[in-house]
């Protein structure tokens, strides 16, 4: 897979989804802080792939492994927009003129789509066609892989 194909694949994955449109840009810190992964605050975007050959890995050099099952996106309801002094519009860069202002309304409270990981580990280990390079803690750190006490 050359680089262009790689990017195209990523794009195809991202475009599998979702229809709903949220309002203004969502606020990143919109989730709860109880330690769990909250439901997405906006429509779900997935990064799942449409299958690929399993890749090999090496601790000394990066390798690329294929993604697993494809994951269709699911649209959930979008958020509301509370523009206060104009509309940011659809974002055409050629819009010109006076810039509209969007005041960043609250994001929608869309339900979690079936393809959105529900744990951090789910995000870290989601199917990916990206190049990867495993780090072997035991081989590289020896006893320190178990996090001994820090020096005084």
């Amino acid at each position: 897979m050359n680089y262009s194909d790689l990017i195209r694949t990523q794009r195809q994955r991202a475009t599998l989804l979702a229809l709903a449109v949220g309002g203004a840009l969502g606020v990143l810190a919109a989730c709860s802080s109880d330690g769990g992964n909250s439901a997405p605050s906006t429509p779900v975007i997935t990064t799942g792939g449409t299958g690929g050959a399993a890749g090999s890995s090496s601790s000394s050099a990066g390798s690329s492994s294929g993604g697993s099952a494809g994951q269709g996106g699911t649209a959930s309801h979008g958020g509301s927009s509370s523009s206060s002094s104009g509309d940011a519009g659809a974002g055409d860069t050629a819009a010109g003129g006076e810039a509209g202002e969007s005041s960043g309304g609250s994001s929608g409270s869309g339900g979690a789509g079936p393809t959105c990981p529900t744990t951090d580990e789910g995000f870290y280990n989601q199917p990916s066609s990206s190049q990867k390079s495993p780090f072997d803690n035991t081989a590289r750190l020896g006893a320190h892989a178990t996090l001994p006490p820090l020096p005084g």
């Binding site: 969502g26 810190a29 997405p40």
Partner: peptide, 21 residues
């Protein structure tokens, strides 16, 4: 495509209102 609850908090999916990917 993701947002994080604070600097090191939980990840969740994020879809901007007007995507520019």
């Amino acid at each position: 495509h993701v947002q994080r609850d604070g600097d090191f908090g939980a990840l969740s999916c994020y879809a901007p209102a007007v995507p520019c990917g």
